Simulated scan of single mutants.
Amino acid sequence: MTKDYAKKRKTARKSNKRSPRQNSSSRKPLSPILVFVGGVLITLFAVFLWVLVKKPEIIKEVIPVKEQAEKVETKESTAAESTETESSEPKFTYHETLTNKEIKVDSTRVTTTDSNKTYIMQCGAFRKQDDAESMKVEMAFIGFQANVEEKDGWYRVRLGPYNSKRAAESDRHKLQDNNYQDCRIW
C-alpha cells in the first residue's frame, strides 16, 4: 500500500503544473518614518522608567507641587467659605479698582504748534488747461473745491490751504477712497 501511495504521489507531482501559491498574508515593509517614531517613543518610555527607578527624587520634586497646589486650593476654599459667611459681597472688584485709580499727568508740558504754518495738497499737474479744469470739476462732484494754478507752463490742481496736516490727511483719505491716489501734501 505504501508503494501504491508513493506512485500516486509521484504522478500527482508531475501532473501538477500550477505555480506555487503566493502567501496572501505577506505584509508590506514598514516605512522608515514609522520605525523611527516608534523607536523614539520606546526610548522616551525607557528613559522615563529609568528616571523612576534611578532618580526618584526628581519625581518627588514634581509630585509635591501638585499636592501643595491642592492644599492651597483647599485653604482658599475654606477661606472663601468663611468670608461668604461674614459678608455676601466680595471685598475686591475690578470695577472699583479702575474707578478709584488716580493718574497724574504733567500739565506743565506744552505742545508747540505752529499756527502760522499752512498745508497745500496737490492732486495733479497738466500741460493742458482743459485737463486740469476737468479734474477740478470731478473733484467738485465729490465735494471738494479745488483751484487751478498755472506756473511754468504747468496747470496744477490744488486744494487748501489747510491749517493742520490732520485736516489735509483727512481730505486726502477721502480722495483716495474716490480713486485719486496721487495727491501730495506740502
Rank of each mutant, 00 (worst) to 15 (best):
V148S: 00
A6D: 07
Q129E: 12
P32L: 12
S170L: 14
M1P: 12
S26H: 12
T111S: 11
L52E: 03
A69N: 04
V65C: 13
R18N: 08
V62Y: 15
A12H: 06
L49H: 08
A125M: 10
Y5T: 13
K174P: 00
T43Y: 03
I42T: 05
P32A: 08
L44M: 12
E102K: 15
K91Y: 09
K10M: 15
G143K: 07
G143L: 02
F36Q: 07
Q181V: 12
R27I: 06
R158L: 06
R18M: 10
A69D: 11
E84P: 00
H95C: 03
W186S: 08
T99C: 03
E76G: 06
T85N: 12
E169N: 14
Y94L: 13
F144M: 02
E138A: 05
S77T: 08
V47S: 07
D106P: 02
K3L: 14
E86L: 03
H95D: 14
N163E: 15
Q22Y: 05
K128D: 09
D106I: 08
G38C: 01
L30Y: 04
A125G: 13
P90L: 00
V47T: 05
N23Y: 04
R158E: 04
E70A: 15
A146T: 01
V62Q: 15
D171T: 01
K3C: 13
R156S: 04
V40D: 12
R156L: 04
Q145E: 06
D152V: 06
I185W: 02
S31Q: 11
L34I: 13
K128S: 13
K104F: 14
T78G: 07
E76Q: 10
Q22R: 10
R27N: 05
E89N: 01
E86H: 03
N23Q: 03
N147W: 10
K136W: 01
V105P: 04
E89C: 02
V105R: 11
K151M: 04
Q176M: 10
R109G: 11
S87D: 03
I103P: 00
G143S: 14
M139I: 00
Y94R: 14
I103S: 05
K66G: 10
R127L: 15
G38H: 06
V51S: 10
Y94I: 14
F48H: 06
K174C: 01
N163R: 15
